[in-house]
Design a protein around this nucleic acid. Structure first.
Lengths: 343, 343
DNA sequence: GTGAAAGCGCTAACAT
DNA sequence: ATGTTAGCGCTTTCAC
């Protein structure tokens, strides 16, 4: 690797001081520098193919123009799509993204926080997982700018961008109720995360008018569930005195796996079982009967996240909290006839 | 943000020099340092919750322990899955990944290279796109360690990890030939990239025994093709004197979109049309008839890539080139009866 | 208008 | 066994 050009190498060749070169190349002190000199410096920098050493600059300025992104599970399309959007917007704002997936494990989360802070990121965008409240509080205590995306902790004041998950579930359940289903099952994850609790609450609230005991129709699976777990869940909902006529899946992975199961058992959708799934994924459009989905406005969420973080890194001391509304994309899986479209 | 602890703050509190603290915390000069002092230093570091400033360390050592990852198109599951694997393996090797997607555009690629080099990454892992040969040559001339993944330039000597794409297509086409198809269409991308040329060559080679003019059955679409393009492609293949009885899709996106089309037209698979697609994606398992796929060993590719890069960053001067063999996962879309399984 | 010099936090060659 | 010192490449204050 040949020696990289530096301020010094340019200064030497131009016969000026590094200070001057720094000023010229950063466009500072424009009014005081002889245009003739400025031109010469720029030309030499160009010829040497100079680009500043960001490491040195960072050490001096205490700014790295780097954002750390922690996602809960990169193998989830929600995360990878969000990562793409965030990288894009960060780039526009002049930031580079370093990222990692905590795989829903607090220890890995902690490790990523440590690595990112050692690298002096200017701020963090976080899709949190169960059990990371202490780390979040640590970040707050250290005054490190961050934004939570999708998942947040209502008991903690912080920046966040999230969906109105209660409303989302409420809307999904009501959609099924409106179409004549009143025995509706829900398969969800066994987690303490607030956004999932809200999804449950929305479902329960919608159903409680018709169903004295909606809890009976909720099956909770551990994250990392396997096909057998899905099968058992369906057994609970379908093999009882009053089987459900519709099922609501609260995450895209649950939706995927449930549909695979339904497909393998040749259960007719929506005739024998109506289906609504949370999250948007191209997958769900591919089944013989495309699946009605509750969509999150990903692009918007990512844009907000970066914008809020940039403001926060700029010194804004107040917290910004954004709650976005979901979209219900009605497909064939939840209605027997009639219009199909997006509400 | 409260003052971060530094070597100096520890040194002061311990009443020793920063050098000593540095040695202790880096486990150097173990034999020469009084254990008693070492213990004290460690304890104080612990109490101050010290963690070293990697920026400063990097400036000094000229090592950032950062890898730049450039993917061609992050919205492609191939890229995002690969990114996950690489991040994972890099982490094991003590490296952090910064990443960006060039969205198949050389200008964006150039920009990412610049950003990553300014940040002094120790090396790069690259899923290249059309038209970046000059940048690759620039990296070579600068002696910057990098590994090409999936796509490489045969006319340039460099590290790479790739699939044997010729063999993959050859195998896919032969599979269809073996099952009684001899009018086989191929829909592919219009690109100069070597790996795609190889996919074409494998197809043509396999077919040429049976088909005097296999080129007639190849349709090339521009990257970023739309549903209409897919429709036209199928028109070419299906609406002619001798329509094809099977179609081979050379990328996962083409596979996806083609299947969507086939599905919408209610074309029966495999009775009316047999289908084989390149790349593995869960999508393709979801159709009424799951789709036969040519699988790339992603995990292995990612592992090789990181390993080769680490070796290369360690100073190895020779190039390592890895060609991996594909796997044909036979599903219902390509055979009328008989065994279904993975060859 | 321009330059000298200090210093960001760390490492390492060179004292002692 | 430990400390002194120089310096990585840059920014910025202060002096001329």
């Amino acid at each position: 690797m040949d020696k990289k050009p530096s301020l010094r190498s340019i200064a030497q060749q131009a016969g000026v001081s590094t200070t001057l070169v720094s000023y010229v190349l950063n466009g500072k002190m424009q009014n005081r520098i002889k245009p003739e000199v400025a031109r010469r410096v720029r030309e030499i920098a160009e010829r040497q193919n100079y680009s500043p050493n960001q490491i040195a600059r960072s050490l001096k300025t205490n700014k790295t123009f780097t954002i750390g992104l922690i996602v809960a599970d990169i193998s989830n399309p929600f995360s990878s799509e969000m990562a793409r959007i965030i990288e894009d917007r960060a780039d526009l704002a002049g930031y580079t993204v370093i990222y990692g997936s905590c795989d829903e494990r607090p220890e890995k989360f902690q490790k990523l926080i440590d690595v990112f802070l050692d690298r002096r990121v200017d701020g963090l965008i976080i899709i949190a997982c169960d059990g990371v409240l202490p780390q979040i509080q640590y970040l707050l205590s250290r005054d490190i700018p961050f934004v939570l995306v999708d998942r947040y902790f209502p008991e903690v004041a912080s920046n966040y961008v999230a969906l109105d998950n209660f409303q989302a579930s409420y809307m999904g359940a009501n959609h099924l109720l409106d179409h004549g289903h009143n025995r509706i099952g829900m398969i969800t994850l066994d987690t303490e995360l607030f956004h999932m609790r809200e999804r449950t609450r929305g479902f329960v609230t919608a159903l409680s008018e018709f169903d004295p005991n909606p809890e009976q129709s909720i099956v909770r699976l551990k994250d990392g569930f396997c096909p057998q777990d899905i099968e058992q869940a369906f057994d609970v909902l379908l093999k009882r005195e009053l089987p459900v006529s519709a099922v609501y899946l609260t995450t895209n992975k649950l939706g995927m796996q449930a549909l695979k199961y339904i497909h393998s058992r040749k259960i007719k959708v929506p005739q024998e079982l109506a289906v609504v799934s949370f999250d948007e994924t191209e997958f769900l459009d591919l089944f013989a009967t495309p699946v009605t989905q509750i969509k999150q406005p990903l692009q918007e969420m990512g844009e907000h996240a970066v914008r809020i973080l940039v403001e926060s890194m700029g010194g804004s001391s107040s917290f910004t909290q954004v709650n976005l509304q979901p979209l219900l994309a009605v497909r064939g899986s939840s209605i027997m006839t009639g219009t199909i479209g997006v509400i």
